[in-house]
Amino acid sequence: MTDGAGARRWDRAGIGLLLLAALAFPLVFTNAAITTYAIFTLMWVAIASAWNILSGFSGYVSLGHAAFYGIGGYALALMAESWHLTTGGYATFAYIPLAGFIAAVFALPIGWIALRTRKHSFVVITIAFIFLLQLLAFNLQGITAGSTGLPLPTPPWTGAFFNVPFYYATLVLAVAAVGVAAWVRRSKFGLGLLAIRDDEDRALGFGVPTGVYKLAAFVLSAFFIGMAGALDGYFSSYVYPQFAFNPQTDITMAAMSFFGGLGSVAGPIVGAVVLEPVQQLLSVNYADLALVVFGLVLLAVIVFLPAGVVPTLSAWARQRAARSAPTGETGAPAEALAPIRGVGESS
């Protein structure tokens, strides 16, 4: 049984251990280079998990959600400017949900327009949006200062400790994004999104409010990605159009989810944890090769493990369990199907 109480207890124990390890991490590893890796890895766990709520669950692949990353960063910069927050501190973190909220408010009309179309055209429209917003960030000089960029509050911390508040803030964001993704996956709302992925018209015919669900998932993804953008902006103290509204951010969040497994809660986490350090290492040591190697790894995954790493491994584990326990009621595919196929069913 995949939903057995025993399996759930193991899951819970595993999650508890992971959380403990994440909480202790900066106490064990004080080196700033290492905690910086950790911060970006957690940031990508949050982004990929949030992206997965829309694109993994509903099948509407957005290559434009980096727009909300940018909006989040600029929102925090503009709040800081108009409220004269030049030096940051712990209180600055409190503005991050507000920046996410502003990104979500933008997501409402953008999602409403983009979701007029079905899956393939949707991808194209979202790509158009990221370029449109980058263009606006470059050209609305009065608001964004164009290519000069905007400053954010300067964090007051120094030395090796500088990273620690950011580490914990990012951990909170990652846990929240994963938690919300897990909760959506188990909810009636999430079931509706998965039904949309498989057969949208049939889902509609069964009474699933597909339009509302898709828009809600779009906005929810944007909210978390907007917060990630604001947090990254605060961490780097500056936002620029080409980095805030970066199409490569879109490719990365999609790639991580595809790598780990689209539509599963653990998939984007695995994707971010495996690929972000790889990407960082490569870009430090072999700057030119980084994108090439990253692309090849991805190609290999898409060709050899099209379902992603997590679903492939769990299917493999289930098969092994079925083979080693041929008599028990494991609910494994091969043996569960056998008796009914035995009635003489074709195909």
Binding site: S187, K188, F189, L191, L194, R202, A203
Partner: peptide, 22 residues
């Protein structure tokens, strides 16, 4: 819905009222 389990398929047509239900 091919990628949903048999159980999940069966729950799709069940309607719920209100935000809390969803």
């Amino acid at each position: 819905f091919p990628r949903l389990t048999v159980l999940e398929n069966m729950h799709v047509p069940v309607r719920r009222q209100g935000l809390a239900g969803v």
